[in-house]
Write a protein that binds this DNA or RNA. Structure first.
Length: 276
DNA sequence: CAAGAATCCTGAATGC
DNA sequence: TGCATTCAGGATTCTT
């Protein structure tokens, strides 16, 4: 998403902001959305930390930013002002060149908020996030330090954005498969070498996802509206009951914490048989 | 503390 | 065909 927006080269000035009558994510961090403060600003760059997109703007010699989270069904697209608005369009940022950045989100689990750049980086939700999953400082040693004593299952450790930011259910399950680790294994039972393996697998599945333009089951689209292709490469997510692509064993499904998952009972064995 | 459930929403798919 | 139920790339908040 970030790369697609960067490619769109939104270098003009923000002339106006339009919002639908519906709120996006409500809750502590998004309460003071302050979106109107971007009007008059000029786009500088799009950055990212985990699943949070950061739009950096210059406004009267001051750095201002917008944090965007797509939630489950959020989409950002760059459109011409005259283009028809998709259903569930909730925010439109109009640019001086006639283009618009549009936030479309049927379920409204996504969020947007604006503030001065430094404030944005030093307050929730950004300040609560762990290291980015693709940052070189995300290492086996780091994960061991943060989760090595935890009784939580590995899948949930990977989903905890305060430990490592940027991994969702799909990529967590895929990474565990590639690291040959059981998703329901308690974190405290892992050895140092396995943590390294897991970090390596996370990096590989995320980079593959980016190369393939994202994973589109239903809602995800790139900045130009294009579909992702990564759903074709998934080894375990959504494949419970189907044969493992490596060994042919029927993949096992599970539900934990209200979220479903799958793994190969042959390739992702539990070290000592006991599990969650 | 941490694990689990309920919650915020809509739409697609499935079941009867 | 129509209506009800279930489930979904997420995160927060409350309860146990």
């Amino acid at each position: 998403m970030r790369r697609g927006l960067e490619r769109a080269e939104l270098r003009g000035r923000i002339t106006q902001l339009w919002r639908s009558e519906f709120a996006l994510r409500t809750g502590q961090h998004w309460r003071e959305e302050n979106l109107d403060c971007v009007v008059g600003g000029t786009s500088v760059a799009f950055e990212r930390h985990g699943k949070h997109l950061l739009w950096k703007l210059r406004h009267e010699s001051e750095d201002v930013g917008v944090v965007i989270h797509l939630g489950m069904s959020g989409r950002l697209t760059v459109a011409q002002g005259a283009d028809a608005r998709a259903p569930h369009t909730h925010v439109i940022v109009q640019m001086s060149d006639g283009r618009e950045l549009r936030f479309v989100d049927p379920r409204r689990f996504g969020g947007m908020k604006a503030a001065r750049w430094e404030e944005l980086r030093s307050t929730p939700p950004l300040v609560d996030l762990g290291v980015d999953a693709l940052d070189p400082s995300f290492t086996g040693a780091y994960l061991y330090e943060r989760a090595g004593a935890s009784q939580r299952i590995l899948r949930d450790v990977l989903l905890d954005q305060t430990i490592v930011a940027g991994i969702g259910n799909i990529y967590a399950l895929e990474a565990l498969f590639h690291a040959r680790l059981h998703p329901l294994l308690r974190a405290a039972r892992l050895r140092a070498s396995a943590w390294e393996r897991l970090v390596d697998a996370v990096s590989r599945v995320l980079q593959q996802g980016i190369r393939n333009g994202g994973t589109t089951f239903r809602d995800y689209r790139g900045a130009a509206g294009e579909l992702g292709m990564n759903q074709r490469q998934l080894a375990v997510y959504g494949r419970a009951g189907l044969p493992c692509l490596v060994c042919g064993t029927s993949l096992e499904g599970f539900v934990s914490g209200g979220r479903s998952g799958a793994y190969c009972p042959h390739d992702q064995r539990r070290p000592r048989g006991r599990v969650a």
